[in-house]
Nucleic acid binder design. Structure first.
Length: 276
DNA sequence: CGCCGTACCTGGAGGC
DNA sequence: TGCCTCCAGGTACGGC
């Protein structure tokens, strides 16, 4: 479900909801959500802490705590937060964890649902977080990603460019939807070896990555089924997808037909007429 | 080392 | 309706 734009939207919603507030009660409904931490240690490190700020790194949601710790969440495919009014912390289908958070004069409940149960959340110290952070590549919307730095990262790779874009160690935050859309916008065949891109290809790809992600953030992400922001609203970017999920439809740019292929086990969509 | 197939899970869609 | 297969926004791991 969530790639960079969805994680960004969720992080902004969480920041508005819980920054400056205290985590009063924690219930772990499914122990695996905190693996390899134990629920007891997770709760001990989080209970009573104030959340200073919620942000995003790649596809991770990170909340800075008042004791210097960091509460981090990896949403994976179907992880979802909801912020709502208090009610009993009872188990519901797909509910992995719930948190009672002091909301000024009242309290609210933050819930983490995860249908496919791939999502994880941990409370880390700064050096543990630094290790994770160091393994993640450059933020694609930051000034660090330039046509020149992208060209250096691409050099020497034989992986198809669509697969390369999914590798979080070089550029971090892009998932399958936006990798496919960026290749379409850049008019690059998703099968092209990453290291074969020439200067003009790299410039178009750089521009495409930033435009696609930037517009998807503006539209609060892409909703097919599971993804919702913390108040339950879907995104709008699915309405302007040009290639992803459009197998057999007409290409908006050249009138060709969008094809679906499988690369490294995952669908890619492209127009053979105008993506070279 | 780089790349890719597989595994981890559940549920929705579509074929029969 | 039921049963089967395929597919899904991510990523860790192991094999080659």
């Amino acid at each position: 479900m969530p790639e960079l734009p969805e994680a960004e939207t969720i992080a902004r919603g969480l920041d508005a909801a819980i920054a400056g507030r205290r985590i009063e009660r924690i219930k772990i409904h499914r122990d695996e959500v905190v693996e390899p931490m134990s629920p007891a240690v997770f709760r001990r490190r989080l209970r009573g802490r104030y959340v200073e700020r919620v942000g995003r790194r790649a596809k991770w949601i990170t909340a800075l705590l008042d004791d210097g710790g960091r509460w981090v969440t990896q949403l994976r495919m179907t992880g979802r937060f909801t912020w709502g009014s208090p009610s009993p912390l009872r188990a519901e289908p797909h509910l992995s964890a719930s948190f009672v958070i002091n909301n000024g004069d009242a309290s609210g409940v933050l819930r983490f649902y995860d249908t496919r149960r791939f999502g994880r959340m941990w409370v880390l110290n700064e050096s543990q977080w630094a290790e994770i952070d160091a393994r993640l590549g450059v933020e694609p919307l930051s000034e660090e990603l330039t046509p020149g730095s992208l060209a250096e990262l691409l050099a020497g790779s034989s992986a198809p460019i669509r697969n390369w874009l999914l590798d979080q160690r070089r550029v971090a935050g892009i998932g399958n939807i936006y990798a496919v859309e960026a290749c379409y916008r850049a008019r690059i065949d998703p099968r092209r070896p990453a290291g074969s891109l020439e200067r003009n290809d790299v410039r178009r790809l750089h521009n495409a990555i930033r435009r696609v992600l930037g517009r998807a953030v503006d539209r609060r992400g892409t909703t097919f089924s599971d993804y919702r922001d913390v108040l339950g609203a879907g995104g709008e970017f699915q309405n302007v997808l040009k290639a992803y999920g459009r197998e057999d439809e007409q290409c908006a740019r050249c009138g060709g037909t969008i094809e679906r292929i499988v690369l490294a086990g995952r669908s890619a969509f492209f127009c053979a007429g105008c993506q070279v």
